[in-house]
Design a protein around this nucleic acid. Structure first.
Lengths: 110, 110
DNA sequence: TACAGTACTAACCTTTTTGTAAGTATGTCT
DNA sequence: AGACATACTTACAAAAAGGTTAGTACTGTA
């Protein structure tokens, strides 16, 4: 008896999205990945100069874990790793476009 | 001489948008405001049961300060205040729609 | 040998964000 | 008088996010 209470509550899609791409850096990183075939860590650092190395690596890991980005280790030495956007990740592109549109409109005089 | 270095750098629109609607609650609040003519604090509390009163008030204030929401004080007693979405605020609607679409796609099996 | 480049990891600390609990002013209703 | 309701405010605490610094392993190059 006493079946487990099954939580059906369809997760709020806004919260789902916030969990995936919330925070200061994930969208910026995804944007860069979405406009380059593949990027190495050092290249991302140059493209996003104000991010700390720790955050960059940490956020990349989160994105890879969430299947929004792909990590390819070439197994070379010195190490070579390439990051790119995944199929699921490509779907933030229109979202980013909307954010840009929103900001542009916001800055427009009334 | 030595003119002040003028920082022209057109603010990154993604960061602008994140500043306006980033965080755990602002989008949720805006979404509710966007689908109701006007809401009182107590009504918003019912619609978003897991937000604390303090956060609700605090975020509403931020949204009003940023011209994304409007606050109307009816000057009655007991106090009556109505919150609604502003013209600028209405422009998050397509952004929210994109977030919903993104989450739906994300949850789709591969 | 010493230094540079790569992609990390780990320890530690600061700042920002979010939450909890209590209290305010005002007037109505009982 | 005392309880209730509204829209807040304040002080404090906890948690999450972000940042700094140093260190790892490996190899090529000066």
């Amino acid at each position: 008896m006493s079946e487990e209470k099954i939580v059906v509550s369809a997760r709020c899609p806004i919260r789902t999205t916030l969990e995936l791409i919330g925070g200061k850096w994930k969208l910026i990183i995804l944007q860069q990945l979405s406009r380059h075939e593949e990027l190495r860590l050092s290249e991302l650092k140059k493209l996003i100069p104000d991010i700390s190395e720790k955050m960059l690596i940490q956020e990349l890991k989160t994105l890879v874990d969430g299947n929004l980005a792909l990590r390819k280790n070439y197994g070379e030495v010195p190490p070579r790793v390439g990051y790119s956007i995944s199929e699921k990740g490509k779907h933030i592109e229109p979202l980013i476009a909307e954010m840009v549109r929103f900001a542009k409109n916001y800055e427009k005089p009334d």
